Amino acid sequence: MTFGRRLLVLFAAAAVLVAAGAWTVLRAGDASRGGDRADDGPPARAGVVTLGPHADGAQLVFRSMTWGPRRDHLAAVPLAGPRTTRTVAVPACLRFHAAAGTGICLQAVHGLLEDTYRAVVLDADLHERRGYDLAGIPTRARVSPSGHLVAWTVFVGGDSYAGTDFSTRTTILDTRTWTLQDDLETYAVTLDGKPYRAADTNIWGVTFADDEHFYATLATGGQTHLVAGDTGRHTLTTLHDNVECPSLSPDGRHIAYKKRVPGLSDDAPWRLYVLDLATMAETATTEERTIDDQALWLDDRTLAYALPGDDGSDLWTVPADGTGTPALLAAAALSPAVVR
């Protein structure tokens, strides 16, 4: 091949690369324009998202997973119309939850060599009230019904609940006084009616009943337990076995959770169950796919949860009483909260 032909081939290849880059930028731009829809994502527009009351009814606020410049930003849709055009706004969150005008956003801070992570408490207009450095990768977040307490869990060792080689740290913050209970592993544990202490204890997945009482998962000795926690007394008491990532219903009567079912693959071990706190009777939902999420109650009868999707995660719903069939709630979405 002559020098001139080589040069021509080089210019042609460069033109292809430039065209491909421009096409990618244009697609990202299309995905970000208000009212436009990316070819592979739900309809979206830039706008104002709030955590306060809405005149047009309850809103579903979540982390938008649509590819483009607004990926990971918070998005809102009417709860009654979750597949309508979503409104997308800053900030970006890896995990999110909200109640009573308070939000908690666990976010990544991208550095030159590695990412670090922060917990940001948001007001109803998504403005930062306080920020805290995190010791690991964000995994769970919850706000108490009053908005006064927030909780988060991070992985400080490992990055998955599927195995046993991981370590978590769970924190509760009082937004009235900014008092931080940095590690719930300092709480006194009662296991099966007896005081218990072990080096392998892990606690994660707080769900609040009120500003003093909560539920969470305690893992030790290769087993997981549902625990009732008291923020004033700093105590944890086991109630039921084989419970992970509990979520308390709005009426306080039931807990949804992921349960390890014998015989399932180690890579997909969980099914979505509901526990009646009065009788301790378990009900399996009709969702037969593995659930690695802390489910959200849309109301006292319906659960929402994340499953893998084309953009990383989709939100699905299923009745909590073991009837019905799973249904897609919102594509390209994760970490939801209902704002009323």
Score class of each variant (00 low, 15 high):
residue 50 T to Q: 08
residue 224 T to Y: 02
residue 20 A to H: 02
residue 80 A to R: 13
residue 144 S to Q: 01
residue 221 G to S: 06
residue 64 S to I: 00
residue 96 F to L: 11
residue 158 G to E: 05
residue 35 G to D: 13
residue 259 K to E: 13
residue 220 T to N: 06
residue 244 E to S: 13
residue 298 L to R: 05
residue 322 G to C: 09
residue 173 L to A: 06
residue 170 T to Y: 02
residue 144 S to H: 01
residue 227 V to F: 05
residue 190 T to E: 12
residue 9 V to H: 08
residue 121 V to T: 13
residue 265 S to K: 11
residue 40 D to H: 07
residue 11 F to R: 08
residue 98 A to H: 00
residue 255 I to G: 05
residue 75 A to Q: 04
residue 280 M to D: 08
residue 74 L to W: 02
residue 28 A to N: 11
residue 133 D to A: 15
residue 123 D to K: 02
residue 53 P to V: 08
residue 24 T to V: 14
residue 80 A to W: 03
residue 279 T to N: 06
residue 278 A to K: 12
residue 311 D to V: 03
residue 306 A to L: 04
residue 32 S to V: 10
residue 105 C to Y: 03
residue 225 H to Q: 11
residue 334 L to V: 10
residue 122 L to K: 01
residue 230 D to V: 11
residue 50 T to S: 14
residue 179 T to M: 07
residue 334 L to W: 06
residue 301 R to G: 14
residue 332 A to H: 05
residue 212 E to H: 14
residue 42 P to Q: 09
residue 177 T to D: 13
residue 17 L to H: 07
residue 7 L to K: 09
residue 214 F to W: 13
residue 192 D to I: 03
residue 198 A to G: 07
residue 265 S to W: 06
residue 268 A to S: 14
residue 73 H to F: 12
residue 229 G to K: 01
residue 227 V to S: 06
residue 256 A to E: 04
residue 320 A to D: 03
residue 189 V to N: 02
residue 200 D to Y: 13
residue 237 T to A: 15
residue 304 A to Q: 06
residue 285 T to P: 01
residue 7 L to E: 09
residue 327 A to K: 13
residue 325 T to F: 09
residue 216 A to Y: 00
residue 253 R to G: 09
residue 214 F to M: 11
residue 12 A to K: 03
residue 48 V to S: 10
residue 171 T to V: 12
residue 34 G to S: 15
residue 180 L to I: 15
residue 7 L to H: 05
residue 120 V to S: 11
residue 14 A to R: 01
residue 135 A to K: 06
residue 183 D to C: 12
residue 243 V to T: 11
residue 31 A to M: 04
residue 33 R to I: 15
residue 120 V to N: 06
residue 299 D to R: 05
